[in-house]
Design a binder for these strands. Structure first.
Length: 376
RNA sequence: GCCCCGGUAGCUUAGCGGUGGAGCGGUUGGCUGUUAACUAUUGAAAGAUACCAACAGGUCACCAGUUCGAACCUGGUCCGGGGCG
């Protein structure tokens, strides 16, 4: 049974919907901040729910494979599952660890899975579809991601094809194992498939067809926003989209910037996650309606106004640019928290506004208006 | 009044006769399913790493002299710190 229902459509292709999970129904489109290790960086799960006026983070994504290494499954299970462990009562996605593959921590890739050394204790670990499905079910997240093989930007067609075929094999295995184990664990966890294919449109098409043919609860497009130029990212998504059923929830992994979010929403994408807002915040780049600004710049040393006048976030309500710049300059961790709060609020607020626009069937206009002010 | 020490980029300083280096700060970019900072990771250890990159900052206090050549040696002046009277 499809847990996703579309409720509104905009002429642009953007849509509103509802995804039913074990921890409530969440409206789409939505953006998930990363809580890789069961927390954000400098941001607590509690902060995520108190970013500012009228904005609540409804979903987070944690990393199943990293959590399985530390603190380990037993501890999370003893805590009563991931939601209780990390004090987040809303929807939690878990990522499988496929993305970490591109980060050079894996020793070798085989047809059966991934062989690597744990970054924590250097133990050899093998990750297989069965293992990752067990891990995700034991963690108790609402949505599990299948184990995929993500190739890096710039690899050859052959290499991309190989990774895609691994992804397909692991996808089939993940699905059947998950279906079997879901009963055993008495879980209502959803499982999403992941389309790969790098930046070769014919592979994207093939992958979209293959993954869509399997009975996943949602379809993700992975392997984008990994260093490629923007137009290539859109092309990769566009190559896959026609072959993904419209009635399933569609998730583009790893995106992104405010403009990218709107561009993908216009294409009918419902779900996102990215580190982009928080990583930029930590490095001093803040989002405003008029574009980005870098509080590190000396010109803000005596600017006693908020990052963005009229912003409803906690940070803009209580702190000035001069103060935030001071904190950042002396490397106080509080700066990273306060700046992250602003950027996360900005993105969540943007999605809320986008939803309003879709409801009123004026999304294209809304998107162009935003781009005009924001730039890029 | 005398003696000692010092004056090198916005700040802290290395260089001590052969065409001015560094760290911090500054400026400008970049960050997209985060192994990415206050205590952690890695290493047997000494240690190493703390987001990355590029760029811009200097008549080496001043004036004379010695020398082929002076931030560097000599004399004087000014400024700062300390000591003795």
């Amino acid at each position: 049974m499809n847990p996703f229902k579309i409720t509104h459509r905009d002429p642009s292709g953007a849509r509103l919907g509802k995804l039913k999970t074990a921890h409530g129904t969440i409206e789409t489109p939505f953006f998930m901040p990363a809580a890789t290790k069961a927390t954000g960086k400098h941001i607590t799960t509690d902060d995520y729910q108190h970013l500012g006026a009228n904005v609540i983070t409804k979903a987070l994504i944690a990393n199943a494979f990293i959590l399985s290494l530390r603190p380990g499954l037993e501890i999370v299970q003893k805590a009563g599952g991931l939601h209780l462990f990390m004090n987040f009562p809303e929807v939690i996605f878990t990522d499988c660890g496929g993305f970490q593959m591109s980060r050079g921590m894996f020793e070798q890739k085989t047809k059966n899975g991934l062989h690597f050394r744990s970054p924590f204790d250097n133990q050899k670990v093998v990750l297989t579809p069965r293992k990752i499905m067990e891990i995700e079910l034991k963690l108790g997240s609402d949505v599990a991601m299948m184990l995929d093989d993500m190739s890096s930007y710039g690899v050859s067609f052959e290499e991309a094809k190989q990774a895609m075929e691994n992804t397909h094999r692991w996808g089939s295995e993940s699905l059947s194992i998950h279906q079997a184990l879901r009963e055993h664990y008495q879980s209502k966890q959803l499982l999403f498939g992941i389309v790969q294919g790098n930046f070769y449109p014919e592979l994207r098409k093939e992958s979209a067809k293959f993954i869509s043919a399997l009975d996943f609860d949602g379809i993700a497009i992975g392997g984008v926003a990994i260093g490629e130029p923007l137009d290539k990212m859109y092309k990769a998504v566009d190559a896959a989209l026609p072959f993904i059923p419209k009635n399933k929830i569609r998730y583009v992994m790893g995106v992104g910037s405010p403009v990218e979010l709107l561009e993908l929403i216009a294409r009918g994408i419902d779900c996102f996650d990215s580190v982009y807002p928080t990583q930029n915040a930590r490095h001093g780049t803040l989002f405003t309606r008029e574009g980005t600004l870098s509080v590190k710049q000396g010109k803000y040393a005596q600017d006693f106004t908020p990052i963005e006048t009229g912003c409803g976030c906690h940070t803009c309500h209580h702190y000035t640019k001069a103060y935030l710049r001071h904190l950042l300059t002396i490397d106080e961790p509080a700066a990273k928290r306060l700046l992250s709060v602003h950027n996360l609020y900005f993105v969540q607020r943007l999605i809320l506004d986008a939803k309003e626009a879709i409801k009123e069937k004026r999304f294209a206009e809304f998107k162009e208006g935003f781009k005009r002010n924001f730039g890029r």
